[in-house]
């Protein structure tokens, strides 16, 4: 076997591609680095700049709006605990990372999802790409990410986006395709343009499904923070990573607990955004 068919040099091809991109598209990567880095810094500034008590109040109010008072109570206790354990600063770094990754996922994911819903051929191309993004181990694309974007938060965000974006695309596509055919007919019959149909009929009706996708994306982005910390992204992930390498069970648990609290809080708030205002 080995003699008849020499091994395909897939590894060399990929390295050549990466080299080529690095040589010729350096400016593009610099721009991406600036934008993403700027976004993360902006969020971090916002979250860390505000006094923790004010942010706790805002988050508790959001949680209260999202659900009933049990969630608000949980948020209040949870956030106080994070503060008490001394992880507040890092939790805010993580939040900034997750929010940036989530935002980018939405900005790219929803239009791509809409495109998929409108054109079958696009969906047929995008679907395997999404499968690839979700199943390829994250460490694998961390390597070229470092190559292009250096160490730190930017490659962390990029890795998170790659891993977290597929649910938004998939569920946007699904949500639009699930709009009943007769409503599309009604919209067309009255002379809607494609854009009017999208904005006035398809997106409002797909909203719960799309929001479920965004919720999933944010959860997945949060699950990437530990991996992102391995290439220098700050935050709770870095605390977990340090605890693991130094075998500090207690500290690891504390940082992990903070991540769980953040996860539940983000999940409930984003979930409720999908359910709201649906008669």
């Amino acid at each position: 076997m080995g003699e008849l068919f020499p091994k395909l040099p897939v590894d060399r091809w990929i390295e050549n591609v990466v080299d080529f991109l690095d040589d010729h598209l350096g400016i593009v990567f610099d721009m991406i680095t600036t934008v993403i880095g700027g976004l993360v810094d902006l969020f971090a500034l916002l979250f860390s700049g505000l006094p923790s008590w004010l942010l706790i109040i805002v988050l508790v109010l959001l949680a209260y709006r999202a659900g009933k008072w049990p969630i608000a109570l949980f948020s209040f206790i949870g956030l106080l605990l994070i503060e008490n354990l001394g992880y507040w600063e890092h939790a805010m770094d993580t939040l900034a990372l997750v929010m940036t990754a989530g935002l980018i996922s939405v900005i790219i994911g929803i239009p791509v999802g809409i495109w998929c819903a409108r054109t079958d051929s696009v969906r047929n191309v995008v679907t395997p790409v999404l499968d690839f993004m979700q199943t390829m181990p994250a460490f694998v694309y961390l390597i070229p990410a470092i190559f292009f974007f250096g160490l730190g938060k930017v490659p962390g965000v990029i890795a998170s986006v790659i891993f977290a974006m597929p649910p938004t695309i998939r569920l946007t596509n699904l949500g639009i395709r699930q709009v009943p055919a007769e409503l599309i007919e009604a919209s067309d019959a009255f002379g809607s343009t494609a854009w009017q149909k999208l904005v006035k009929v398809q997106m409002p009706l797909a909203r719960p499904t799309v929001m479920a996708g965004i919720n999933q994306s944010i959860m997945l982005a949060l699950s990437m923070v530990v991996i992102a910390s391995m290439i220098g992204a700050k935050g709770l992930g870095a605390d977990v990573y340090r605890a693991v390498t130094q075998i500090k069970i207690g500290a690891g648990f504390e940082a992990g607990l903070a991540i769980v609290i953040m996860a539940i809080l983000l999940d409930r708030i984003t979930q409720s955004m999908g359910k709201k205002k649906n008669a």
Partner: peptide, 9 residues
């Protein structure tokens, strides 16, 4: 339309 096709939102 037969099934009314009203916009539920």
């Amino acid at each position: 339309f037969q099934k009314f096709a009203l916009f539920p939102h």
